[in-house]
Simulated scan of single mutants.
Amino acid sequence: MTENVPVRCPACRRTHGYTPPSYPCPCGTPVVPPVLRGAPAEPITHRTWTDAWITARCAACGRQDQWPQPELGCPCGTVLRLPVRPVASPAPQRETQGGGSGPTSSATGLSTAPAHIPLPRTAAPPRPAFRPVTIRTARDAVSTAARYLRWLGFRDVVQPEERPAGPVTGVDLRGHGLVARVDPTTRPTSLRAVECLWLTGLATEARGVAFSLAGYAPEARARAEGIGLPLFVMDLTGIPQPLGGAADELLAGGA
């Protein structure tokens, strides 16, 4: 089974438990990024697509592939990058302890069950588990947000054919009683973007929901908390994380 790794946020000093995601190798064995236990996590202040990927080796077939850099969104608003063991440094061989006679899952220390994201503790049953898709482009980020909103229960979530000009005034997704903005840029979402989305929701009698890859400026998050606008941070594994009480309530109760 994948081990839970303690991660300490350097901004708020809070410690979180992080379970690295697994990715499907073509040979059928789940590949888990080798997160360095005890290594300090780094706040992400600037994103580049090339720096957001790591190389990991499948312990079963030896194949090397590129996968998203492990990240964790702290409730304080900081997005953390978790360091991983370089491919050149091989992981400890567990099969030497078991003599190599056990099944593949015992030899590699990895579960052979299909990778999935378990239901959040606050999610209301019987909603199934959300299955993420790796984000590689800005379009992937919008598609992931749309899938997540449908998973939460919003109906008819689509991307508008016409999007108003401007860096913060547009709505990327609409649905029944919903307007949503997806910020795939490498800079934290601004206060103005949050307020514009909220005002758009008021004008259209719809609920506003925001998604961001790089997190939110402190004043943007404080404003969203005050007006009850749900904020979500997405990492490149395609797993949105709620930030603030409004997002927690939306995740718990759905649309």
Rank of each mutant, 00 (worst) to 15 (best):
M1T: 08
P6T: 05
C12H: 07
R13W: 07
Y18S: 01
T19Q: 13
P20C: 05
S22D: 14
Y23C: 00
T29I: 11
V31T: 15
V31N: 12
V35S: 03
A39G: 07
A41F: 01
E42Y: 04
E42N: 10
R47M: 13
R47K: 12
D51G: 02
D51W: 01
A56V: 11
A56Y: 00
A60R: 12
D65R: 12
P70A: 00
E71F: 00
C74T: 01
C74M: 02
C74D: 04
T78C: 08
V87G: 04
V87H: 04
G99K: 10
G102W: 05
S105V: 02
A113D: 14
P114Q: 09
P118G: 02
P120Y: 07
A123C: 12
R127K: 10
F130N: 00
F130M: 03
R131V: 10
T134S: 07
T134D: 05
A138K: 11
S143C: 11
G153L: 01
R155Y: 05
D156R: 07
D156P: 00
V157M: 04
V158G: 05
V158I: 12
V158H: 09
E162M: 11
P164K: 09
A165I: 10
G166R: 06
G170F: 11
V171D: 07
V171G: 07
R174V: 15
G175S: 02
H176M: 03
H176A: 04
L178F: 01
V182H: 03
V182S: 08
D183S: 12
R187N: 09
R187W: 09
V194L: 04
E195R: 15
W198A: 13
W198Y: 14
W198P: 00
L199E: 11
A203S: 14
T204G: 00
A206G: 00
R207M: 11
V209S: 01
A210K: 07
F211V: 04
G215Q: 02
Y216F: 15
A217R: 15
P218R: 04
E219I: 06
G226I: 14
G226F: 13
I227H: 10
I227C: 14
G228W: 08
L231M: 06
V233G: 04
M234I: 04
M234H: 02
Q241Y: 12
Q241D: 14
P242K: 02
G245T: 13
D248T: 05
D248Q: 08
A255K: 05
